[in-house]
């Protein structure tokens, strides 16, 4: 008994301290919010609409392009694979501000892709497409890496059994791979969603307008002060986080993450 008592405290105290530190900012928000005079700044509503609609739009190409790539990466090994892995990690690890600058370089009004697309009538600076583009780049690597892990968790043998049962690879993908990876894929979508919603640095460079929640928070802070960000911050937490939180907890329970 005494030995247990002696061994417990240090890790236990460290854990409690870490958890308190983690919780502190959220408790701070709860206490700092002026609930009596809870009101939004001008333009907050539009920012919420922009963030929600464009984040949903960004999810479409992320899922459409990222899912096949994730499945392919989970199922194939080729020479030079490390190059692909490195590219994914590079995209994941590039600081958002730097990523924004890179996007401006290539898709901006003077960039090669930007000029080409502009001739086709697609302006990728300070426009809705630019906003979605920034979110796409910010969230895609997270989605691909999480979705790859989800597909890697599906026993390859089951996909092969589906083939030996006379079904096509596509049928096998839809009826075996997708259902078995569904929880991990949902977690990947949630991760992409929260990344897209919360992206500030990349969006700031290529799409200061239209203003989404993160940029509007920054503008409120600059123009009106800290107290003016809390209502919008609450909206951000309530819209961006529930889905990833629920899926994260579910996935953790099934030991997927």
């Amino acid at each position: 008994m005494s030995a247990t008592r002696l061994r417990l405290p240090l890790p236990f105290l460290a854990s409690v301290l870490a958890l308190v530190l983690l919780a502190l900012p959220f408790v701070g928000l709860l206490l700092a919010t002026d609930w009596q005079h809870f009101g939004f700044a001008r333009g907050d509503g539009a920012a919420v609409a922009v963030s929600l609609v464009y984040s949903l739009l960004a999810l479409l190409p992320i899922i459409a392009l990222g899912t096949p790539l994730a499945w392919w990466l989970a199922r194939h090994r080729l020479r030079g694979q490390w190059l692909i892995d490195a590219l994914l990690l590079l995209a994941l690890l590039t600081p958002p501000l730097a990523l924004g600058l890179l996007l401006a370089t290539i898709y901006g009004p003077y960039g090669p892709a930007g000029q080409l697309l502009q001739r086709a009538g697609l302006l990728l600076t300070n426009s809705a497409p630019a906003f979605v583009l920034a979110q796409f780049y910010a969230a895609l690597p997270y989605y691909v890496i999480a979705a790859r892990a989800a597909f890697e968790g599906v026993p390859r043998e089951l996909e092969q059994i589906a083939l030996t049962l006379g079904q096509s690879p596509w049928y096998s993908f839809v009826h075996v791979s997708l259902p078995l990876a569904r929880l991990g894929l949902a977690a990947a979508v949630a991760l992409a969603w929260v990344r897209a919603m919360g992206e500030f640095g990349t969006v700031l460079i290529v799409a200061y307008y239209p203003r989404g929640i993160p940029v509007k928070l920054w503008v409120n802070l600059q123009n009106l002060g800290l107290h003016a960000v809390y209502p919008l911050l609450w909206v951000f937490f309530l819209t961006a986080l529930p889905l990833p939180l629920i899926l994260g907890l579910a996935a953790r329970r099934r030991q997927l993450l």
Partner: peptide, 17 residues
């Protein structure tokens, strides 16, 4: 191709979906 071979394949551990 695997999908066109008339085999009934039972892998180790049965591998039910």
């Amino acid at each position: 191709a695997a999908t066109r071979r008339a085999v009934g394949y039972l892998p180790q551990g049965q591998a039910l979906f």
